[in-house]
C-alpha cells in the first residue's frame, strides 16, 4: 500500500503570460513539499497559495470538475499534453507520476485557434463553433418519437458512445504537430453519423463542421497519431478515417443548395 509516499521537491518552469496581447515567458518556481498523492492541479494550488502569501500573482490555469470529465483542465507538461501518464487529464494526473528532483516545464495548449487568456488558460470557443455549425440532430423539444421506436443495434450504440466520450478538452489540438482539430471533429461527426437518428443530416453536418473547423484556423491532419496518444478518452484514430470518408462521400453526393450553412433548419 502506498498513499503516504515521501514529499518531493520539484522545479517548475511555468509559462507566464499576462494576456493574449502581451508576450509570455517561462518563470522558474520551486515546489518543495509535494506529496505524491496530490493531483497535478493540487500541486499547482499549493504553489499558488505560497505565491499569494508572498504577494506574487498566482498562476492561472483552467479547471473545474477535477475528475476528468468536464474537459476544462489541460496543460502541456514536459512537452506532453495532459502530462506523461496517458489516457488521463491533468486533473487526474497524480504527482506520483514524477519523482523527487524532477524539473517540469508547464505550458499552455499552443494553437492559433486557442489564444492564450492568461498563463496556462486558453480560449477554446472555436471548438464550440464547430459544434454550432452542425454537431447536432435537429429535433426541437417535444417532437421526438418514443425512445424505443427507433432501434439502435448495440454494436452501433457502443461505437457511437466511444466517439461521444470526447470531453472537448482540446488536447488533441495541443498535441498535434499541425494544430489540427480532426480528432475532436471526427468524434462528433462519428457519434451522430453512426446513429440512425443522425442519418438525415449526415452529409450536411460533415460539410458544415469541416468548413467551420477550417475557418477557425486549425491545421490539417497528416496522420501523426499524437492526438489519439494524448486523448484522455482514448478516442480512436479510426474516427478520423471515418470523417474523411464521410466528407468525401458528402462532397461527391451533395448538391449546392442542400448544404446551406450549418445551424439553419
Amino acid at each position: 500500500m502506498s498513499g503516504h509516499g515521501k514529499a518531493m521537491k520539484l522545479t517548475l518552469h511555468v509559462w507566464r503570460q499576462k494576456n493574449a496581447a502581451t508576450k509570455g515567458a517561462f518563470v522558474t518556481y520551486d515546489a518543495p513539499d509535494i506529496s505524491p498523492d496530490m493531483s497535478f492541479l493540487e500541486m499547482l494550488d499549493v504553489v499558488n497559495e505560497r505565491l499569494i502569501l508572498q504577494g506574487e500573482d498566482p498562476i492561472s490555469f483552467d479547471h473545474d470538475c477535477r475528475e476528468g470529465i468536464c474537459g476544462t483542465c489541460g496543460v502541456v507538461v514536459n512537452g506532453q499534453a495532459h502530462g506523461p501518464r496517458g489516457a488521463t487529464t491533468a486533473c487526474q494526473l497524480h504527482m506520483r507520476s514524477f519523482k523527487d528532483g524532477d524539473v517540469l516545464t508547464i505550458e499552455p495548449w499552443r494553437a492559433t485557434a486557442f489564444p492564450v487568456i492568461k498563463d496556462l488558460a486558453v480560449n477554446r470557443k472555436s471548438l464550440d463553433r464547430i459544434i454550432a455549425a452542425g454537431g447536432f440532430i435537429s429535433v426541437p423539444t417535444g417532437s421526438a418519437v418514443d425512445g424505443n421506436a427507433v432501434l439502435v443495434p448495440k454494436v452501433k450504440a457502443d461505437l457511437a458512445m466511444d466517439a461521444a466520450a470526447c470531453i472537448g478538452c482540446g488536447a488533441c489540438v495541443a498535441a498535434c504537430p499541425n494544430g489540427s482539430a480532426m480528432l475532436f471533429t471526427a468524434a462528433k461527426v462519428s457519434h451522430l453519423g453512426l446513429l440512425p437518428q443522425g442519418q438525415p443530416e449526415r452529409s450536411r453536418r460533415v460539410l458544415a463542421m469541416v468548413a467551420t473547423m477550417d475557418a477557425e484556423g486549425f491545421g490539417t491532419c497528416t496522420n501523426h497519431g499524437e492526438c489519439e496518444a494524448v486523448c484522455p478518452k482514448q478516442i480512436d484514430l479510426g474516427f478520423i478515417a471515418r470523417l474523411n470518408r464521410d466528407y468525401l462521400v458528402a462532397s461527391l453526393t451533395t448538391r449546392g443548395q442542400e448544404k446551406s450553412s450549418g445551424g439553419s433548419g
Binding site: 499552443r110 492559433t112 498535434c176
Partner: peptide, 26 residues
C-alpha cells in the same frame, strides 16, 4: 497544407515529446 498547419501552430513547445508520431511522419 503545410502553410495551413504552420499558421495553426506558429509557436511550438519547449521540448515536445512525441508518443505516436514517427521519424517518418515528422
Amino acid at each position: 497544407l503545410t502553410r495551413t498547419s504552420r499558421k495553426a501552430r506558429p509557436e511550438g513547445y519547449r521540448s515536445p515529446q512525441y508518443r505516436e508520431a514517427t521519424y517518418a511522419s515528422l
